[in-house]
Amino acid sequence: MSLLVLGGTGTLGRQIVRKALDEGFQVKCFVRSFRKAAFLKEWGAELVYGDLRIAETIPLTLFGVTAIIDASTARPTDLYNTSQIDLYSKYILIESAKKANIERYIFFSILNARKYANIPLMNLKVKIENKLQDSSLNYTIFTLGGFFQGLIRQYALPILENQTIWLTGDTTSIAYMDTQDIAKFTIRSLSLSQANKKILPLVGNSSWTSLQVIELCEKLSGQRSKISQVPIYLLKLAREFTNFFQWSWNISERLAFLEVINRGDNFNTSMNEVYSLLQIQHDETTQLENYLQEYFAKVMKKLKELNYKMGEESSKIEF
């Protein structure tokens, strides 16, 4: 089976590429910068040029492809707004997939997206879900909560570097999951017809609020955090301001998504059906405590090695 992976250089996409290659799949990566994606080629993937901002480049990337795994999304730094990249271009991709007789289309959405139709990012995901459901394609839609990897930059690094962590609230809990586990579920689904035309959640074994994650990081690192609260009204003002300018619409849409995180929702659900359907055991997925413990252990080990080397250099100078 030949896979076309979109978003292969991203946090989730690169894990999907690695897992697919390990499982013996032929992997093509849809990229617009061969330089930034060079590491994927080193792993064994084939790079094909494609740009979701340029619709004409999309159909040619599907030549010889059996399945599409779409792990792409617009970035806050993109000058184009998300409706161009996450909606219009995805519609063209889906139509092109139908014409190319793609056997499976995997798309990643957001858990609880249908509850927040007024939030642009959520609304876009739901529209693409609907487009796939109305198509003749064999699709699998995975709805995600959050990634372990995102917690490193958000909480772990600021604590280690004694920087301020900015919070807008602590009423929403999220069942974060390791992207390596998400990749494992994704690749497994390709070989199972039972996953056809299914919307399946992919979430961790337990949900966490921001403060609970921070407390865990403090415990494992042995360091205290510096927390500052950002009033929600300031977030709303920032969203309204950025919505005035076309170049900042993408930022405005993501600020709107941050408002969701402060509504006291629980981004978690049962995974029993998914474990059974994809024939994966509960204990095969990583616990957040173990993931962060391993991360901090590696960081502390490197710091000790660095201090030891600095001590050796200092003693040589004194001698």
Rank of each mutant, 00 (worst) to 15 (best):
R32W: 06
P158V: 10
K127Q: 13
K36D: 11
N123A: 08
L87P: 02
G50L: 03
R75D: 03
Q149C: 04
F34S: 03
G169E: 12
E161G: 10
S135V: 01
L121C: 10
E129G: 01
G145T: 13
Y116K: 05
K131N: 13
A71E: 01
T77C: 03
Q133I: 10
P158R: 09
A45S: 08
T168G: 12
K99E: 13
N162D: 13
S173I: 07
D51V: 14
T77H: 02
N101K: 09
Y88N: 08
T168V: 14
A37K: 15
L47Y: 08
G146K: 05
Y88V: 12
F39I: 03
I128G: 00
E161A: 08
T171G: 15
G64Y: 00
L137G: 01
L151E: 02
A100M: 11
I69N: 11
E129D: 03
E129L: 06
A97M: 06
K98I: 04
Q163R: 15
N138E: 07
D134C: 06
K90D: 02
I119C: 09
I128D: 01
L151M: 06
F147H: 06
I128H: 09
K115H: 05
I68E: 00
S33I: 11
R35Q: 08
L132K: 11
T164C: 02
E161V: 11
V48D: 03
Y105L: 02
Y176T: 02
A71G: 06
A67C: 06
K99C: 08
I128E: 01
L47Q: 08
K131F: 00
F142P: 10
A74K: 14
Y105P: 01
Y88D: 10
T179Y: 00
N123I: 00
L79Q: 03
L160N: 15
E95T: 12
P158S: 11
L160Y: 04
S135I: 01
R114K: 15
Q149G: 07
N101A: 08
A71R: 12
F63H: 12
E42D: 14
A55I: 04
K36G: 04
A37N: 03
N123G: 02
G64C: 04
F148T: 04
V48G: 04
N123R: 12
T179P: 10
G146S: 13
I141Y: 05
T168I: 13
I106P: 08
F108T: 05
V65D: 00
F39T: 09
A97V: 00
P59H: 03
I85G: 06
S83Q: 13
S83F: 13
D134Q: 09
E161C: 05
K99F: 13
Q154E: 11
A45T: 14
F107P: 05
D178Q: 06
D134G: 10
